[in-house]
Structures are given as C-alpha cells and as structure tokens.
Design a binder for these strands. Structure first.
Length: 308
DNA sequence: CGGGTTTGACCGGCGC
DNA sequence: GCGCCGGTCAAACCCG
C-alpha cells in the first residue's frame, strides 16, 4: 500500500533523472566515444567481436536474408573474443565486475550454454516452452530438461525496482535472494501468448543498482505507451510499430564504472546502437525491429551469434 | 469486477 | 537420498 506510493514517487524520480540526463537529442554515435562504455563491456576495441558476442545480431527476417552491410568506416575485425565476456550460468548477472564498481550493464546468454547441453529439443521446442513452464507441475518428458529461453540481464541504476519498458508485466512471485537483503521479483508479460518473463532484483553490492533479467522474446508489439513516459518517442527514434526493444522509456540503464558515471542509458540503447552499427542508419535498417528481446537475443543466439 | 500484487506452498534441479 | 535453493503456482487480497 504505502509501498506503491513509494514506487510511484520513485518512478517519477527516475523519470526526471532520465530526462535530465539524456536529452532526446543525445547523439547515439557519441556512445562509442565513451571509453567507459567499452570498458564496462570488457571491450577494448570498438570493433571487437566480443561486442557482437554480447549483443548478437538482431533477428533478420528470412526474406531479407542479408542485411545491407553497414557503411561503417570500421568493420568488424574478427579477433577471437574472450569467452569470459559471457560467463557461465552460475550467477544471473554476467560481466560481473571484478570490482564492485567496474561495470554495470550486462547482458546474459547464460542459458545459451545450457541450451547447448540440452540442445536435443532444438528450436521446435521453443514455442512450447512457454506452455511448458506453465505446466511445469505436470509430468514432464523424461530425459528432457526444461528448456529455457535465452536470458538477457542488464543492470540499471534506478530507485525503482520494476522498470517500465513499455510492456505490461504481471508479477507472479517474489523470493528472498540468498546472500542479499533484497528480494527478487518475478514478472511475466501479460499479453496473451507471450511468455516473456523477467526477474528484477537489486544488487546486494549496490542497492541503487537494479538487475533485470529478461527471458524470452515478445511475440507482439509493444502494447502500451507507459504513462508518463518521456524522452525519445518511438517514431522519433526511428523505430517501427514494434517500438524499441526495451522501449525508449524512462528506465535508464546507468552506465557506470570505476570512474564517475558518464551517462544514463536506456537498455535499448545497446541493441539500438549496435543495430546502427550493423545496418547503418537508413530508415529501412531502423525499421528492422522485432520487439523486445528479439532484437537483443535472436534465435541464432543459442547457436552461433554470427551465422551469416 | 477485472487486473494486479502478495505470499506461503510446492516442485524440480543440483550439489553433497 | 537428502537438503538447499530457485522458480512457479494459486489463493487471498488490494485497488481503481
């Protein structure tokens, strides 16, 4: 009850922070000029493939096959990427900073490893997955581990636990987290047929950091414009009807490092920025958006990120 | 009344 | 086999 009041207040706080920190005219390209950004991703070279490991290619509709090669001055030089950029499952948060302050935004394909292991089911299993999770209590096929969607985690500096990303979520559980004073909340996308889930928890190291882990891909467009959303509109951001993967909304991923914070970034920034790199900035390219995680966690992810 | 949250119980995976 | 723990269920509750 009071909590909700708090949440509302906090939400607006976050909003204002966002609007203050990120003007809608924030130049995307400048992102790449931020050493901090690269640092926290464990990327030294702008063109390091590790970036692509972290942010695999967005789903490209089969019809369009090859995306037009970006007219980027710098093309990906294929250097073996450190496997360490995608740590194993154990902790949800990948790229866990060596020092508490050394990194923030993280993405996780931690389940991908599992999928490798349990590949048996393969893609066809994917659609049934949502149902399966629901029917978890039912007897399950022997010898078949429950398959999970790829997960994608990132950290956000926010006072709000549940970040508004434009999709509608229903909380279905909350658990105390071991070794953390903060509980973990479980959310499911309320859209029928969409089984995307996300977990939200606060970092025990830094209570101002919210770790959000998405699981699955939205099978529908972003349904709502969050109330009180501000900042870049989807149109102005160049997105199609689907909207940006995380919505260009006031949940600012907060990039920080050992240095003072440089900026707030919307989580969608990563994929968006990356997409710009891949496809250039043509409107066509920008329209190639398929919703929340599709953009970030393409189906190819469980195999090889670059299969092109 | 519909939709969302809370919360204790339950289940399954995994390590020992 | 057992216990721990993460994830989910579902009834009760809350709120607009």
């Amino acid at each position: 009850m009071d909590k909700r009041e708090e949440m509302k207040t906090e939400n607006s706080m976050a909003n204002s922070t966002f609007s203050d920190e990120i003007p809608s005219s924030f130049p995307l390209s400048s992102i790449f000029d931020m050493p901090c950004y690269m640092d926290l991703l464990g990327i030294q070279d702008f063109d390091s493939p590790s970036l692509f490991d972290l942010f695999p290619a967005p789903m490209v509709p089969p019809a369009q096959s090859q995306p037009p090669q970006p007219q980027l001055q710098q093309q990906q030089t294929l250097v073996p990427s450190p496997a360490s950029t995608v740590p194993a499952e154990s902790s949800e948060v990948v790229n866990t900073p060596a020092t508490p302050n050394s990194s923030s935004i993280s993405c996780s394909s931690n389940e991908a490893a599992n999928e490798e292991r349990t590949k048996a089911g393969g893609e066809e299993e994917e659609d049934q997955d949502h149902e399966k999770t629901k029917k978890q209590l039912k007897p399950k096929k022997k010898n078949q581990k429950r398959q999970r969607e790829p997960r994608f985690a990132f950290m956000t500096k926010s006072e709000v636990d549940h970040l508004d990303d434009g999709y509608r979520w229903r909380k279905y559980g909350q658990k105390a987290v071991k070794n953390s004073p903060y509980p973990r909340s479980y959310y499911r996308c309320t859209t029928a047929g969409c089984g995307v889930k996300k977990r939200v928890e606060r970092s025990c190291d830094d209570s101002s950091i919210v770790v959000t882990t998405y699981e699955g891909q939205h099978s529908h467009p972003c349904p709502v414009t969050p109330r009180g959303s501000i900042g870049i509109s989807q149109e102005s951001a160049g997105y199609g009807a689907m909207g940006p993967p995380f919505g260009v909304h006031p949940q600012q991923a907060y990039i920080y490092s050992s240095q003072p914070p440089l900026t707030h970034l919307n989580p969608s920034f990563h994929s968006f920025v990356r997409e710009r790199r891949r496809f250039g900035t043509s409107p066509e390219a920008l329209l190639r958006d398929h919703g929340l995680l599709q953009d970030i966690v393409p189906s190819q992810m469980r195999k090889e990120p670059k299969e092109e």
